[in-house]
């Protein structure tokens, strides 16, 4: 068979439009402090770190098949790591953030060897148990206020800036940058050769091994990156809330249940899904904020309906119907160009 010339393309019209839209969103986010109030900025900070956590959990469960219910372990370690670095070791906060992330990564390595001995449901429960053990350990440490927790010393906060407005600006931009950077990281990863391996593992783990993909290495990388992202979010949470308790730092509801909800609703196994899911989650939360227990009941009901009726979430419905990819991770072959 004679094959004419061909070309492998990485972007489509939809993806170019998507990229333009994405740039517009980034510009809008940069301009927010100029026109919005403190409440909006605080909301966007929270949106940013939920987006980062959702992207991380999507890599774990949506691609590597690692259904973790224990990401709060690394969020919590990030929280306490940041407290230790700043309040106890007197490290400047903006230096303490990257140091905390590195420390969380170092702790994550041995936990990986424990967790990777488990598969499927056992892995899920194992990661949860690990997080609970860490939570209980921190309730025992008197230096951190045990179960009642501790506040971030005021000098740490003042160290960022004496000026409250500047402080809030720094926190806002750091958080938003981390949200955007996480999306970008996941996109570039999926687009690369390693992304081909990750996507293959998502679609058929057995077959991925048969074509030469080292699944264990890829999974370990995902596990560690997800831990680093969670640790980073943990450090930011302390800066934002200025106070930490073991229950809040290692909260399974905040850092696992909500994040799993976001990814399931938005669409597991795509870059777009967690973005859509984060938006849906925060819209629902603001709509249902006044209804107390009904808030969680409604979230749960929506999650169940989506899982049954649209297993690939909101983005799955849109993406498969219109074949749209805002993030062009696919390769398209154009044949017979001459």
């Amino acid at each position: 068979m004679i094959i004419g010339s061909y070309r492998v393309e990485r972007s489509t019209r939809a993806s170019r439009a998507g990229f333009a839209a994405m740039l517009a969103v980034i510009v809008a986010l940069i301009s927010v402090p100029a026109w919005a109030g403190r409440a909006e900025m605080r909301l966007l900070i929270e949106v940013s770190y939920y987006l980062a956590l959702a992207q991380a959990w999507n890599l774990l469960a949506g691609y590597a098949g690692l259904v973790s219910v224990g990401q709060q372990a690394f969020v919590g370690l990030g929280c306490y790591g940041f407290i230790i670095a700043t309040a106890f070791l007197q490290i400047p906060p903006l230096v303490a953030i990257p140091l905390t992330v590195v420390a969380v990564g170092l702790i994550a390595i041995p936990t990986a060897f424990l967790a990777f001995r488990l598969r499927g449901a056992h892995f899920a429960i194992g990661t949860w148990v690990l997080a609970e053990v860490l939570r209980l350990i921190f309730t025992l440490v008197q230096a951190f206020g045990a179960g009642t927790g501790m506040s971030l010393p005021i000098h740490v906060v003042l160290d960022i800036s004496e000026n409250r407005v500047i402080r809030e600006l720094i926190l806002y931009y750091v958080s938003v940058a981390i949200g955007i950077a996480t999306v970008l990281l996941v996109f570039l990863w999926l687009r690369s050769r390693e992304g081909l391996a990750l996507t293959a593992i998502r679609d058929s783990e057995a077959a991925s091994g048969s074509v030469g993909i080292n699944q264990q290495r890829t999974k370990l990388t995902v596990y560690l990156i997800a831990a680093l992202i969670a640790g980073l979010v943990g450090a930011l949470v302390v800066l934002e809330k200025l106070r930490i308790t073991p229950d809040a730092a290692f909260s399974v509801t905040d850092w696992s249940a909500n994040v799993i909800f976001i990814v399931i609703i938005g669409g597991i196994g795509s870059v777009e899904g967690p973005i859509v899911g984060t938006l849906v989650f925060f819209v629902l939360r603001s709509l249902l904020a006044d209804y107390g227990a009904w808030y969680l009941i409604t979230l749960g009901a929506i999650a169940i309906i989506v899982m049954l009726k649209a297993p690939r979430g909101v983005w799955g419905l849109i993406g498969s119907r219109y074949d749209v990819h805002l993030f062009p991770v696919q390769r398209r072959v154009r044949l017979n160009l001459d």
């Binding site: 077959a207 074509v211 030469g212």
Partner: peptide, 22 residues
Amino acid sequence: PQPFGRMTVFENVLAAASFSSG
């Protein structure tokens, strides 16, 4: 058959060619 279902046919073959050979 165990295709990489949400990858394109080309990407299925590409993953095999690339990772088997390095």
